[in-house]
Amino acid sequence: MSDSKKKILEMLAKGKISADDAYRLLSAVDESERDDETPPVEPAAKGKGKYLRVNVIPDPDSPNSEHADRVNVRVPLSLVRAGIKLTSLIPTDARDKINDSLKEKGINFDVNNVKNEDIEELIGALGDLEVDVVSGHGEKIKVFVE
């Protein structure tokens, strides 16, 4: 028996608290002890994901869910990595054009500065990615790494 429970019973015996109060306090102590025993949930290790998942499922709460498509795509992160590395094969002229187009759209990003270390960091950071969107067309869109 824990010290808290003993104290509650002593208080009850001395008439300091009623039987109802004692019952309520004992229940609260039981609950807190159960919470302490529950092992903490470990967050997913960063960079341990293997696949990028894109799921589109009908939203059951939406009236348009009957017209929603279902998509389930699993892309290996190694394929994403290989794809990003392909940027090094883009000719310089084309890279400049890409940079100009990005700037026109307000994205200040230089494709020439993409380095191998950056790619690894980017792929590692994808582990924390989680996108959850409910569209107006009765679809739920989820993007995550598993």
Partner: peptide, 28 residues
């Protein structure tokens, strides 16, 4: 140099394809 890099990348992309899965079902 570009051709050599393309050949190498092609190999790594083909190997990285393992595990790819696409499942699409159209509504209605």
């Amino acid at each position: 140099r570009l051709a050599w890099a393309v050949l190498r990348s092609l190999g790594s992309i083909i190997c990285a394809l393992r595990g790819l899965r696409v499942d699409v079902a159209s509504a209605g």
